[in-house]
């Protein structure tokens, strides 16, 4: 079973890299962009085939290591058998 963790800055944390991307898009003439957010994705291959066990396990991984709760939010998706 596979899991996908998406990690992004919490609202209110100004991400200078996202701001640079937004500025570069404007420089290319893409005026219609109102916001840019960078999201880091980590995909995991897991031993278990039970979605609930997988979800609980990955949530713990997020709390312990994958995300920093001070500045980041993580969301977990359990993917179909990969």
């Amino acid at each position: 079973m596979q899991a996908r963790v998406s990690i992004r800055f919490k609202d209110g944390v100004l991400d200078p890299e996202a701001a640079a991307i937004e500025g570069a898009l404007r420089g290319l003439g893409f005026d219609g962009v109102r916001g840019v957010r960078r999201v880091r994705v980590i995909e995991l291959d897991l031993d278990t085939n039970e979605p609930e066990a997988a979800w609980a396990s990955v949530e713990r991984m997020c709390e312990r290591l994958l995300a920093n709760p001070v500045i980041e939010d993580a969301s977990v998706e359990i993917l179909k058998e990969g």
């Binding site: 800055f9 944390v13 100004l14 991400d15 200078p16 890299e17 640079a20 920093n68 001070v70 500045i71």
Partner: peptide, 17 residues
Amino acid sequence: LTEAGLLPGALIRNRGL
């Protein structure tokens, strides 16, 4: 030390990149 929770807050990329 911030990642270990001994100090509050976090450190991210410099504003000027």
